[in-house]
Design a protein around this nucleic acid. Sequence first.
DNA 1: TTGAAAGCGCTAACAA
DNA 2: TTGTTAGCGCTTTCAA
Lengths: 347, 347
Amino acid sequence: MNARTVTLREVADRAGVHPGTVSRTLNEATRHLVNAETAERVLAAVSELGYRPNVIARSLRTNRSLTIGVVVPDLTNPLFPPMVRGMDDRLAASGYTTLIANTDNDLQREAAVLETMRLRQVDGVIAATARREAFLVDQLGADLATVLINRRSEAERLSAVVADDRDGTRQAVLHLAAFGHERIAYIAGPQTLSTGADRYEAFVDTIESCGLDVDPAHVFFGEAFTEAEGVRGMQALLASGVPFTAVATANDLMALGCYSVLAEGGLHCPRDVSVVGYNDMPFADKFNPPLTTVHIPHYELGEHAASTLLRLIEHPETEPQTRLLPVTLVARGSSGPAPQRLKRRHA
Amino acid sequence: MNARTVTLREVADRAGVHPGTVSRTLNEATRHLVNAETAERVLAAVSELGYRPNVIARSLRTNRSLTIGVVVPDLTNPLFPPMVRGMDDRLAASGYTTLIANTDNDLQREAAVLETMRLRQVDGVIAATARREAFLVDQLGADLATVLINRRSEAERLSAVVADDRDGTRQAVLHLAAFGHERIAYIAGPQTLSTGADRYEAFVDTIESCGLDVDPAHVFFGEAFTEAEGVRGMQALLASGVPFTAVATANDLMALGCYSVLAEGGLHCPRDVSVVGYNDMPFADKFNPPLTTVHIPHYELGEHAASTLLRLIEHPETEPQTRLLPVTLVARGSSGPAPQRLKRRHA
DNA sequence: TTGAAAGCGCTAACAA
DNA sequence: TTGTTAGCGCTTTCAA
């Protein structure tokens, strides 16, 4: 702290009142209890002395830190900054401050991070980690207001705000089907993440609802939502020898991985193979070709998660609810009509 | 807070010692003052009761919040997440928690954000805002440990960690010169930001040191580091009618803006015009063409800023110092040999 | 090596 | 409407 710390007591002395009165003047909820004239005198003293309330002392007394913990796998993943901003903007508007922590999808770090947040007495937590095992769920929820984002609660015991992954995948597949594609491959995300599992299931459902078949050779299960896994996926798909004219991916980075394998193999996207991503990450429109993908309202997800959490803090007895936000397919250059004749797709 | 809050006093009771002893046991610095056996008993009680120290109470007492404020213009700008992670990783390792706030380059928000941080008794601030006017400088520094990142301190009164913008721009221009370009245009960033001004000055210096001239018609001053300004810049450059074979930009987004104008005008990059960006933003290698640009060690900038701040907090009397981190040109597909013959570059 | 006591700055129940 | 009082949970001087 700096030397120039003015306390409530000093303000009280200056205004010739009791510290309690100053406190009452400064607090919205109790301001009405104090005489207008007195309040004026207090406020004058406050500005003369440049008084700023000590939030820490207040928190100690009130047991509310006005702080919310936000847990993300990695802020560096372009998905999360918009979400976080959505939360922060909403929370800041209500006087809350946001504590952001990265877990790198590591359970140990996740535990450590949550511990830190508890120690800091956060009033609530928004968790953007997508792991399906109910690790957070067990720890939190019961004694800390918690909202999940981008991940449903398996047991439905926690409130969640998620994008409609099933519908998004459905739109992606229908988009390809409308282009006449009948052999559509899929590069799935990790099935340990709810996003990975949901999207894969929706893929299967939609393919079948189109009267098409899911050839096991047409599905690759990535171990992470990364470009490298996209590369592995497309390589495996091509190596299988089973022809396809389009591939849907569980994530834009994977789609990017497909791009490079296709290019290396002398295959043109979308002329030879259409590619559809997922997420509409920033600059997806700048890629070569511009990526057709499913847009997720990241910022709004964040906002809704924040609102939901705020409500939960106000009314702890609220029933958990899952909020599903709509997504939209963004058609760009990476998808087009199915080739007339199926050629072999070997690299 | 939840019902299950165990206090120091309860631990003391359980261990049959005085609260002071528990405190001493739990604090690194004073642990040696307590008998090994006693300490063991205390630690046992701690884990039996699941005690967690109340950080807020500690802060109130010690006047240290173990919290650092980080001020960025906009977390959504891909520059900042890696910086923030660099800081956070370093700070977390020392037990500090990071409070991130966005200003949107708005002075009012900046003031509000800093006020919030003061109220929260942050132990220090890292400011990543690049505005040149010494707004923060006036407010901070004197009474709060402050480190600037990505921006030098005009008066050199604050410590700063910056990338070597002059050298980066130099490298970019020399790269183009080595390709035989003699008419090199420049799309500059806002001159109100130190990054914008430094890079522009380095551009002029380097061009001249190459024995070339800076034609005023070859320079466009963007009002923001955005794609839209890149578009405006390239349009202006082409409209001027003064031929050029390459353009350096103060920022990757601006380079992206150039791409679209060139494409619209039927000009090929790099065959007709080479383009060089700045920052090496994520996925710059995925653009069409892959962008030649100057790589900045964002993560390391963050780490260094954090280390510098930590040192400053430990030793407040340290002289302010500016740390310059090296940058490197990354040659990719958007730059190539100058066309043999200068053609008119009208759109 | 440990206990006692005071107090960080604030809020809130109670009294006046 | 205001003052009084107590105390949030912790650290830290001082004394033993």
